[in-house]
Amino acid sequence: MEKFRVLVVDDEIDFLETIVKRLQKRGLDATGVDSGVKALKLLEGEHFDVVILDVKMPGMDGLDTLKEMKRKRPFMEVIMLTGHASVESGMQGIQFGAFDYVMKPANLDELMEKMTQAYERKTLHEERKSSGRSGAAGSVRG
């Protein structure tokens, strides 16, 4: 599997540390931060392929973080992580450009599969952009 860069954003420090470790074990270049604000700050200087983003966080919540992320990095794919499944948040997340939803507690295999698909999408998107087929930047979801 290709090694890609993953950012995990979750305010539950225990969960965050475990999952980052496990993803690294699976050969991914994974980083964790515990708030949306920190994630956005990190994105100023660094590049990630896929983000795992908790929906429910104090302060800046997942949806607001998602909106900001997609504005800054339209090609970066974001997978929402949610403890309490709700139609409303699902609808909003997908509308704002989330790639997928994963229910907590996340099964690692399932998460890996989704991240791989998200990464594939990002690559396809970028390839198309560089080959000029999609033309204007307006054709990009974000």
């Binding site: 909003q92 509308q95 704002f96 698909q117 594939e120 999408r121 396809l124 998107h125 198309r128 087929r133 999609s134 307006g138 054709s139 990009v140 979801r141 974000g142």
Partner: peptide, 19 residues
């Protein structure tokens, strides 16, 4: 905001990425 977001999604006409 909800309405304008939906309209923007409409207008964006983003080309699908087939997977």
């Amino acid at each position: 905001r909800d309405i304008t977001q939906k309209l923007l999604n409409f207008a964006r006409k983003m080309e699908p990425v087939f997977q």
